[in-house]
Amino acid sequence: SFLFLCLLFLFSCNNSHKEYGKNVFPYSGFLQEKELKGEVIELDTALFRYPFRIRIKGDKAIVMDLHGSEYYGHLFQYPSFRYLSSFGRRGDSPTEMLSMENFRFHNHKVWTLDANKSELTRLDFSSSGDSLLREETVTLDEDILRP
């Protein structure tokens, strides 16, 4: 059995070239490489408990705080990340949110999803561009959200 294992080891170390299909090419490196860098930006207040999502559009960046104590979303100037305002107040009133699962930029507006209240909310930038104002709320059918 020792001789059999030695032969098996020698055959497995064979350097024969494997043939691939017509459009399959072996490679030893990636064709495109990207490098991510970051820097620490000092803030005088703690805004986040659990920053979860970030979206950037033009000169604005929004960071979603999954377990926000007062607000679920925070608006920043991009790329300096200067704090502008917070939105998506946590609460139970008609203008507040129970949760924020996701948000999207669309046509210079921001849409947020509150699945616990089954609502989509459209927010628009103020005339100065430093805050988001609630414009419209759309109630969703319970069947299209999670049970």
Score class of each variant (00 low, 15 high):
R55M: 06
I41Y: 11
V63S: 01
V63K: 02
D59R: 12
F52R: 07
Y72Q: 01
M100Y: 12
W111E: 03
L43K: 12
E101Q: 15
K57N: 14
Y72P: 02
G129W: 01
G91Y: 05
F52K: 07
S80K: 08
H108N: 12
L75V: 01
K57V: 02
R122N: 11
R90C: 07
T45M: 09
Y50E: 10
L120P: 08
L47C: 04
P94Y: 08
K109Y: 07
M97G: 00
K117P: 06
M64W: 01
F48H: 06
S118I: 06
N107H: 14
R53P: 01
L113R: 03
S93P: 02
F81S: 03
S69Q: 11
R122H: 03
L98S: 11
S80C: 00
R90L: 15
M100L: 15
M64G: 10
G68I: 05
S69N: 11
G73K: 01
E96T: 14
S69E: 14
T121I: 13
Y83E: 00
Y72I: 01
T112V: 10
I41L: 11
T121R: 13
V63H: 01
W111A: 12
G129P: 06
A46I: 12
F105I: 06
Y83G: 00
D65I: 04
T95D: 15
E70W: 07
F103T: 00
L66P: 02
S80T: 10
T121G: 04
N116E: 07
F105W: 14
H106C: 12
R82W: 00
Y50L: 11
M100G: 15
I54S: 07
T45D: 09
L123Y: 14
T45I: 08
H74F: 15
S85N: 06
N107V: 11
N107W: 11
M97R: 04
E42M: 08
R55N: 08
K109E: 15
L120N: 12
S131T: 08
L66H: 11
D114C: 07
I56W: 13
L98I: 04
D44G: 15
D130L: 02
Y72A: 05
L47E: 13
K109C: 13
L43G: 02
S131L: 11
A115D: 12
Q77K: 14
V40N: 13
K60I: 03
T45H: 08
I56S: 08
S128P: 03
Y71G: 04
R53D: 07
F87S: 02
